[in-house]
Design a protein around this nucleic acid. Structure first.
Lengths: 335, 335
DNA sequence: TTGTATGCGTTATCAG
DNA sequence: CTGATAACGCATACAA
């Protein structure tokens, strides 16, 4: 049976109030009292019960990170940074997988499940802004959006400039002399906004150069298998693309493999660029050209925003734009 | 302000007890009462406060998964399966990263930090059994070990037969006619037992064939960069190895890249096999031969064990051996 | 500076 | 089958 505040108080011959003060490091306590309490705490191996503390204060010290799939490298690398950033400001992180399930997302967001369990939520959403707005009516949980939704002033929001990132990636391909350029990653479901923004950037860059897309291939999810399949389809077309912009590095990893399985070479026959800069791409052969997002920046700022909103629920919503940079590697430059 | 049990009781004109019964689905409640309560719950959008419930019952419905690094694919793929397995039996999962920090592990295990926050812990440890024993003295938290520690009857434990897995991987290389076989993944720190077991299996397989290891290279961690570095060192040796057994797939991914950077071919010059069967290896070029661990099996059984121990703290400790299988791919067979 | 007493929202005990 | 009420362990308003 673990020791309680009351046990410590009895042992130290002081009131619970004093023990509480010592434990919280809060008010002014005389040195003599403090020492008595500290001794009693050590002797009893007392540790405050965080659940009781939460019931009293309404704070759990926990943040939720909601992502579609934790085993997608971009999300696990993000999770690592979020966990670290949160630890630095005294929060712990619970990870929720929605598994591309809109209902699960809704459930998490409306708090059907999570009332009072988290102080705030970092959310990398699949659902649209419209749906988010509707959900948010029911819940006042501090919420920061990660990813690329359009900013509408109602939500805190940290993301790269997604249109520009796609534009830069595409411009890189064009600058290399490629002219038959395709993309992979459009979502069959029109309501997702990340793919839409990337498509917009892709088309804008092409238009700047007086080109049109050869083809924009859909991808149900952003996993290797989706990239593989989409690339196969692309390579069967006539004319065959000489460059592919993938909306995620993982799609690109699948596309790389598909090009080789088709007996073609990267980048000689087909140049490939992704987006995310996952570590996997740096070791791939050829190494993957990509657009790097500053994940530690995103994590740090997202945590800072949600904490700010926890402390002041009426804080103005902020849009934070994370830096991005094209990282050319072998899959476009050759070796 | 969210509605409470008391609000519902007032609204429905019944006692809190009855409301609680309805909410918990527990005792016998008359249909008329139940309906009144249900209506009131709906009208007030009432949801039970899990923190208060926890304070009262002592159960949080949360499990902790403690891993060195969540962005290592093996762990993130395991995490995905654990989250899913836990969800099926009504538990949620919080992920803790120890970052190879022994002190952090100790802190988590002795519960310095986590008292009453989790009902149980799934732990993929770096520390030795001796240290674990010492820690466990102080805490009675239900604990299941994931990975490859020797079984000593004191802890629940689910893992593959690690010696055999290493043996099988090595035997595969030998069966292909390789004779100058090296390994990557020994830990400078002797106390880790996973590497030791893998080394034992490696050496046993070689001995069976009348061979001796060319060299067993150390790896500080099991990441791509460590594999890269170790493989570089190996390739500089004379005689150069014609096969490398890596103690993890991620090490193997680094080794693959190192071989190519040295101007050699896989598998013609050097065959490579890893262990874990991460998805990344299936898309690599060449695709990575590996030993597959049944991660869903591990996750399912680990969750089942910890739940069993939560329900009965005195349950006998169990050792569950997960299946493994050598998966030959291009990095040993060629394409 | 320290002590006393109350309540956070729930479940469980004890009556009825 | 249902109602009143006492904990769970802590933090704080209020008093001293």
């Amino acid at each position: 049976m673990p020791a309680t505040l009351r046990d410590v108080a009895e042992r130290a011959q002081v009131s619970m109030r004093t023990v509480s003060n010592v434990v919280s490091g809060y008010a002014h306590v005389s040195d003599r009292m403090r020492q008595k309490v500290l001794d009693a705490i050590a002797e009893l191996d007392y540790r405050p019960n965080p659940v009781a503390r939460t019931l009293r204060t309404g704070r759990t010290g926990m943040l939720a990170l909601v992502v579609p799939e934790i085993d997608v490298p971009y999300f696990s690398e993000l999770a690592r940074d979020v966990i670290n950033a949160a630890a630095e400001v005294g929060y712990r992180v619970m990870i929720d997988q929605t598994g591309h399930d809109h209902d699960r997302e809704r459930e998490l967001l409306t708090g059907a499940d999570r009332t009072m369990l988290f102080d705030g939520v970092l959310f990398s959403p699949l659902v649209t802004r419209g749906e988010l707005l509707a959900m948010n009516e029911r819940s006042s949980m501090p919420l920061v959006l990660l990813g690329e939704h359009e900013f509408d002033g109602r939500f805190d929001h940290v993301a790269i400039d997604n249109v520009q990132a796609a534009r830069d990636a595409t411009a890189h391909l064009i600058g290399l002399g490629r002219r038959r350029i395709a993309a992979i990653g459009a979502q069959p479901d029109e309501q997702y906004s990340t793919p839409q923004q990337r498509t917009a950037g892709f088309e804008a860059a092409l238009a700047d150069a007086g080109l049109a897309p050869i083809r924009i291939e859909a991808a149900a999810h952003y996993r290797r298998a989706d990239g593989y399949q989409a690339a196969r389809a692309l390579l069967d077309r006539d004319p065959r693309p000489d460059a592919i912009f993938c909306y995620s590095d993982l799609l690109a990893m699948g596309a790389l493999r598909a090009v080789f399985d088709a007996g073609l070479r990267v980048p000689e026959d087909v140049a490939i660029i992704g987006i995310d800069d996952i570590e996997e791409g740096r070791y791939a052969r050829p190494s993957l050209s990509t657009v790097s997002l500053d994940t530690p920046f995103i994590a740090r700022n997202a945590v800072a925003r949600v904490v700010a909103r926890i402390d002041d629920p009426d804080a103005e919503a902020a849009e934070i734009v994370a830096p991005h940079a094209v990282i050319p590697r072998e899959s476009t430059l050759g070796s």
